[in-house]
Simulated scan of single mutants.
Amino acid sequence: MTGIRGDGPIVRHDGKSNSRSELIRAAQRLLSQRPPSAITGKQIAKESGVHYGLIYHYFESKEALFLAAMEGLTSEYIKHRESTVDRSQPLPPLTFSGHELWWRAAANYSADGGASYASLGWTYPVLNHELKQILEHHPEVSEFEAKAHIVREVCLNFGWMFFKDTLQEGMRLTGDQMAELGNLISTA
């Protein structure tokens, strides 16, 4: 049963909404707004428009729902990188354009020092994928150089995700200026 994706809920071809997908998308949006420990099942139900009890019909726990949410965002981001990154460049940027939900959710998961990631049994797939790709395509780059590059990119992007609103206000930047800065940061 394939869904039709738009701005609204995923709808199956038979016209019925797909509650599981709606729960995942709601969890993704909420994870992009706050750490997982600050999200309740009731908030997920409200955000998704799905009855609270269905969370536990489709997922064994809230953490299992969060894992599905993060796996979906991560899969989309890695697929995007595989099709768009110029691997002739030894240390390509980890862009966030078009993947702000993943970056915000990853930043919120990281906010507690990694305990939330540990609860998922997370293996940092984007970071490890990127490390593997750099080392595979550029054996001249040391593992430490590649890791340092990834760390710098993550710190820059997490900072942008967390502080861009404050920076816009504090520096009196227009929306167009913020978009230009975001493009510069995302491709630097």
Rank of each mutant, 00 (worst) to 15 (best):
E63Y: 09
M178T: 02
P90A: 09
E153M: 13
Y109C: 02
L184Y: 06
W160I: 09
R172H: 06
Q33A: 13
T123N: 14
A68Q: 08
K132W: 13
K79E: 15
F59L: 08
L30E: 07
I78C: 15
L65N: 00
L184M: 09
W122A: 04
V85W: 03
V11L: 00
L23S: 00
H149R: 07
T84W: 14
A69T: 07
A107L: 09
W160P: 02
S186R: 03
M1D: 12
E60G: 13
C155F: 12
P93C: 08
E140P: 05
L30A: 06
T74Y: 04
Q28H: 05
R172V: 08
H57P: 04
A188D: 08
G170V: 05
V141D: 02
L156E: 09
G72S: 15
I4T: 01
E130R: 07
I55R: 00
Q33P: 03
L67I: 13
Y109P: 00
E169N: 05
F158C: 05
F96I: 10
R87S: 09
E136S: 12
R81G: 15
S142Q: 06
R20Q: 13
S61E: 07
E63P: 04
K62V: 10
K62C: 08
E47A: 12
G182F: 04
H99S: 12
T123G: 13
S37M: 06
S21P: 02
A27R: 00
L23C: 08
L23F: 02
G6C: 14
M1G: 14
E153F: 05
K147Y: 11
Y52T: 05
N18D: 11
T174Y: 08
F144N: 06
N183K: 05
A179N: 11
R81N: 14
L91P: 07
E145I: 05
I10C: 00
A27H: 01
E100F: 11
I150W: 10
P9A: 01
L30G: 03
F59I: 04
R12L: 13
S32Q: 03
I44K: 00
T74H: 03
H57L: 13
P92F: 13
